[in-house]
Computed example of a mutant assay.
Amino acid sequence: TSSAVKSPVDGLGLSTGARSGLTGFVAGLARSTVARGVTLNNLLPGTFDTARLASNFAAQATRQGITPEQAIAARLAKHPAHRFGRPEELGNTCAYLCSVHAGYINGQNILMDGGSFPGVF
């Protein structure tokens, strides 16, 4: 779904609301499928280095009269990991959750945000 379900992003209220509903639905459904060997979990990605993110930074840079590189540097300076996630990291986590090695992980929300979420739970 999205890390925004734990830490809403200003201006993305409709998206966050829909994703929150999906997140809750999947968590509830997971309890009814696990006895048949079907596990359901949610991945909650934060900022990942994708073409969409680059496009967002380009638009932000235009609005602010700065370069995209300056917009990215400002964001990374505030990020605990000082980098964005790599798409393969999300893919590897998804593959793990779909493997036999994760058969007892069910109904969970796996937050992948490089430590951006400031809370404990």
Rank of each mutant, 00 (worst) to 15 (best):
H79E: 12
L90V: 13
F57M: 14
L90S: 05
A71D: 00
T67W: 08
R86A: 15
R86I: 07
P68Q: 09
H79W: 02
N42R: 01
T50P: 07
G46D: 04
P80H: 06
I66E: 09
A77P: 01
T47C: 02
H82Y: 05
P87S: 12
A58I: 05
T50S: 11
A58W: 02
R75A: 14
D49N: 10
L43K: 03
G46I: 04
L43V: 10
R86D: 14
R83V: 03
Q60A: 14
N42A: 07
G46Q: 07
Q64G: 01
A61W: 02
A73F: 04
I72L: 12
H82R: 15
N56K: 08
A81V: 01
E89H: 09
I72F: 01
I72E: 13
E69A: 15
A74Y: 04
H82C: 03
Q70H: 08
R83T: 02
F57H: 11
R75S: 13
F84R: 05
N56V: 12
A54D: 13
S55D: 11
H82V: 01
Q70K: 12
A71L: 03
T47A: 13
S55A: 15
A58Y: 04
T67G: 09
Q70G: 00
A73I: 03
P68Y: 08
G85F: 12
A54L: 03
I72K: 14
F57P: 00
P87V: 14
K78A: 15
P68C: 10
L43D: 00
L76F: 04
A81F: 12
E69K: 08
L43S: 04
A61K: 01
R63E: 14
A77V: 01
A61T: 05
P45E: 08
L44V: 06
A61I: 03
R75H: 12
A54R: 14
E88Q: 15
P80W: 05
R86Y: 07
Q60Y: 10
H79F: 09
A74L: 10
R75K: 12
A81M: 14
T62A: 15
A73C: 05
A58F: 07
E69P: 00
P87Y: 08
P45C: 06
E69S: 11
F84N: 04
P87T: 15
A59D: 11
R63M: 12
P80A: 09
R86N: 11
G46K: 06
A58N: 08
A81C: 05
N41W: 02
A77T: 06
D49W: 07
T62D: 13
L43N: 01
E89Y: 08
G65V: 10
A54W: 03
I66T: 15
Q70P: 00
A58K: 13
D49M: 06
I66W: 01
L76Q: 07
A71I: 05
T67Q: 09
A73T: 13
E69Y: 06
G85D: 10
R75G: 06
E69F: 03
A81K: 09
L76S: 04
L44N: 02
F84Y: 15
A74R: 14
E89N: 10
T50W: 07
R63I: 08
H79S: 15
A61C: 04
T62S: 11
A71T: 07
E69L: 01
R83Q: 03
A61F: 06
D49I: 05
N41L: 06
A54E: 14
Q70S: 11
G85E: 08
A58R: 13
A74Q: 14
I72Y: 01
H79I: 04
L43C: 02
A59F: 05
